[in-house]
């Protein structure tokens, strides 16, 4: 079943007076339950593409559909609701909220969804247990290693069981052992829970784990080994 579709997606930034073409006519689709990597050199448009799919940014032209709903037709409020209910983000720099503990960072999304305190605490703790980070519950981000923070970020992204998890270079700041463990963890989430993962990366390990790889170059898709 098709979950994400982009149509002739273009994104142009203005660098002073010079236009920078980040994406140039990207058309592709992602099925439900895929474990897909978007690869390409720096500046190829990987992060821009993830930001557009995740409704964090708007395209200059073209359109994105999530389950056949056009993102262009959604206002800010609806885009927020989409991000809250259907999409989880994992960032290269983890982006945990520094004043909250690991448990609170994970719980936060459930709080926004209106889940009662007791239930959200139980759900967050259960997930932390499954991900092997139960011991970090009371630690703040500055008390955790990069790998630990990224695991917490994964937990935060999937705690409400979104349909899609978008991960922007999730292993870029991790050593190879930790990166491997994290990829195994996400693959397990994909297989056990049916969550669709879309990565941007140029890490060979990530590409080896991916079931499908889309390669971008200068804002265009130059290769897709599993084109739908």
């Amino acid at each position: 079943m098709e979950l994400i579709r982009t149509e002739d997606l273009e994104k142009t930034y203005q660098d002073h007076t010079i236009p920078v073409y980040a994406l140039r006519g990207v058309t592709f689709s992602v099925g439900s339950g895929e474990f897909l990597a978007i690869a390409g050199p720096s500046g190829s448009g990987k992060t821009t593409l993830l930001n557009l799919i995740g409704a964090l940014d708007r395209p200059s032209s073209g359109n994105i559909y999530i389950e056949n709903h056009s993102l262009r037709d959604l206002d800010k409020k609806s885009l927020s609701a989409l991000r809250l209910n259907r999409i989880g983000f994992i960032f290269q720099a983890y982006n945990l909220i520094p004043v909250l503990t690991a448990l609170e960072n994970i719980e936060f999304k459930l709080m926004l969804l209106g889940v009662p305190t007791k239930e959200r605490r139980e759900r967050a703790l259960r997930l932390m247990g499954e991900l092997g980070i139960a011991g970090l519950a009371d630690k703040r981000p500055n008390e955790m290693s990069g790998g630990q923070q990224q695991r917490v970020a994964v937990a935060r992204a999937i705690v409400n069981l979104p349909q899609i998890v978008l991960a922007d270079e999730p292993t870029a700041n991790l050593d190879s052992v930790t990166a491997h463990a994290l990829l195994d963890l996400m693959l397990a989430m994909n297989e056990e829970r049916g969550i669709t993962f879309v990565f941007s990366s140029h890490d060979r390990q990530v590409l080896e784990h991916a079931k499908r790889v889309v390669i971008l170059h200068d804002g265009q898709i130059v290769e897709d080994n599993g084109k739908r």
């Binding site: 999409i87 909220i97 936060f108 926004l112 935060r156």
Partner: peptide, 16 residues
């Protein structure tokens, strides 16, 4: 700014 961005990315509404 960065934390507000994270909150927005997480789906926090403008009203909140």
């Amino acid at each position: 700014t960065r934390e507000l961005g994270i909150l927005m990315a997480t789906g926090m509404k403008n009203r909140n």
